[in-house]
Design a protein around this nucleic acid. Sequence first.
RNA 1: GCCCGGAUGGCGGAAUCGGCAGACGCGGAGGCCUCAAAAGCCUUUACUCGAGAGGGUGUGUGGGUUCAAGUCCCACUCCGGGCACCA
Length: 821
Amino acid sequence: MARPFDVRSVEAKWQERWRLEGTYDVDNDDPRERYYALCMYPYPSGAAHQGHVRNYTFGDLVVRYQTMRGKAVLSPFGFDSFGLPAENAAIKAGSHPRIFTEARMAELKRSVQRLGAVYDWRREVMSHDPQYMKYSQMIFLAFLRAGLAYRAEAPVNWCPGCATVLANEQVLADGTCERSGDVVERRNLEQWFFKITAYADELLTDLDTLEWPERVKTMQRNWIGRSEGVEFDLVVADDPSLAVRVFTTRPDTGFGITYAVVAPEHPMLDELTTDEQRSAVADLVARATSASEVERTASSDSGVGLTKRGAFTGRYVVNPFTGNAVPIYVADYVLGTYGTGAIMAVPGEDERDLAFARAYGLPVIQTVERPEGAGDGAYVGEGRHVNSGFLDGMSVAEAKPAATSFLTERARGVVTVNYRLRDWLVSRQRFWGCPIPVVYCDVCGVVPVPEEQLPIVAPDDVVMDRNGQSPLATHAAFRDTTCPVCGGPARREADTMDTFTDSSWYFLRYTDPFTPNRPFDPVEAAKWMPVDQYIGGIEHAILHLLYARFYLKALVDIGLAPGLVREPFTRLFTQGMIRLDGSKMSKSKGNLIAPEQYFDRVGADALRVFHLFVGPPADDVDWTSQTDDVIEGCARFLDRIYRLALDPNLVDRPRDDARDRPIEQAVHRTINRVTADLDRWSYNTAVAAVMELLNTVSKWAHDEGVDRAVFDEAIDVIVRVIAPIAPHVAAELWEIRHPGEPSVHAQAWPVADSGLVLEETVTMVVQVNGKVRARLEVRVDLSDEAAIAAALADETVREYLGGVTPTRIVARAPRLVNIIP
RNA sequence: GCCCGGAUGGCGGAAUCGGCAGACGCGGAGGCCUCAAAAGCCUUUACUCGAGAGGGUGUGUGGGUUCAAGUCCCACUCCGGGCACCA
């Protein structure tokens, strides 16, 4: 395509100017109303792909738009620069992850600058920066002091093929290693945890205060998984001094208990097992723990439908409701880590119990009456209780409290809330992450590294691979140290922190990146927090967003952020993914549509317009063979603006209300449409509205000639409203048309003249029996009566009525009249 | 299995409160300009019957509510995503 201006040089010129002038630098004492706009900080994977472009186009639009609305907008950028891909790449190439990471950061930075996205680069942060590490480690130590960080034994993922421990993210859904394809095993190791479960309830209830996509909130609610129920004792039949404590959310079904189950990890299992059953139980436990884990979760009919395995322990407990003795089983479908690690089994009203009962020939008792056609599966719905003694006839809602009080009085029952959420395992047996700042002393035990010794930075000459333990543990000079307390020999913690810890507080550092000796100044942070608009991918719906919420609450509570809000992100927007011909993006396919070539061919502005215009921002984008045509259409749109704005062939003429007022009205109505659309994240319709206005103004200018004042106003409005959308073209046109004036990006967002927005006449639709038969131009203040009169007077309408007197007329003046014959 | 989304022309999509379905763009067709092409500009473009005027049909399927349904209600089909033994 022949363009009316040199896109590459114009874009380069403005990018250079924004960068050199620090146009979007913002100070903490800026008197304007504040706005914090943030895109999730990226893992540096190299040059930007279209997903990045989409993300930063939305973010940049928000930044520029809110700036024009008169706000001081904080727009920072940084990198989530620790992580596995760089480490793996370095292992493969025999290099250092820092080299990879920093090269890729430079590439990505270049891409976002070529996109024309603007940031306050002075505030840039990187997780692998020793300064940033220092603060990450200070936060860890603060958590440790507050009891929010603790050590416990936990199963980790061990890949026999790679001879190393894997992060959870490296284990595929089928239980194999993403690199070698080997089946991952479970090994128990001492690990560090953050006590996120202490905040389970607040994390759940505060979701209600957030303007987030309902989908994301639902995912978090499910992940936290709050269940209210009762914990009570099932007393062992032949030994009343022993009892198995169980948790249930359905105490009302207690008359239907036909057996009990303990998890393979249950501490009382040994005690509960009789000698005759010992070997059967041992077999089951062996299968349920290590290797069988994969077998269990990888089976095609996963979930509730999984094959359940169990063994009889040889002993019985007493059902407190009936006094009957029921057998105790050990089974793999009961988890040691949830509730009490033991359950009462009610196969009549629980699917999993029913599947197990059927497999092992255990009795099934129904305790809730089923509606017609409920089938012979477990019934979990509402109904009257039956076979349930004193609960008979009650609904589920009535029976629950009744059964609960019974258990409270007779079986040491306690009302309990359980969460599915587990504490956050933060240890990683990896090199390219932030070292956990503690040492182990034979005399003093676990000793935190004194803050003045931070940051603990890993040495560069570490062998990163295939030794089966944390790379840092093999580096003697790093490992061997002295105890800060007693001065005796000690060894450093060799594990690094999960990289999600880095991304859990970076948005706080952005608010105050210059402060030394502490992660941030709470007073400065409070000036910007919370983030007004957070933008990122749906893939972070749970982990990152949950961890960051936890971090802020914890930081406030332990005194690092006194007085700060407890929720970091007020509004969240999750953009759709880019799909290539219907399939998910892969790296090689992604290269085919690399943004760089679009910057070269059509320019950043055209690509930005495309991403905004192609569909609702939250929807996925299908990148197809037609996409390049659409992108060229977007370039054409910008070219048409450019040509019209500077058209030397327009014919000037004096003002003529009949011809010019409709143009002014269109201009001002468009201001309102675009503003409303930008405010509600309807970017595709905002662009469409500007296209429509351009079509209107262009036709008017070419067909009717122009009144210069009307024309100039129309063009200036178009240029200003596209400033956040296509910032280079807008800046260029503004400069040409207003030499010497401040840039379009420093101009105020246009405000519509209400007198020009109001419509004087509208098209009224006249329906006969619900079908449109006539359209009449009428005044907006037309009364219903006048509308009916006008409708009935219309020639076409009379023909359709054929002289019949209408039985009913519905009038909604001035838009519609419907006549029913 | 459970929980969320979604389904509108050849394609991406619009219709903000139950009131003109298909804005805007891509693609297609025809034309202007040109020696010719590219670029640009103009017209047209849901389907269908009809020479035309004009008529009929139409928002995944089947019902319903309403003067009026893409929009609300019930049942279902298909597609996408999330969670998956959490008692």
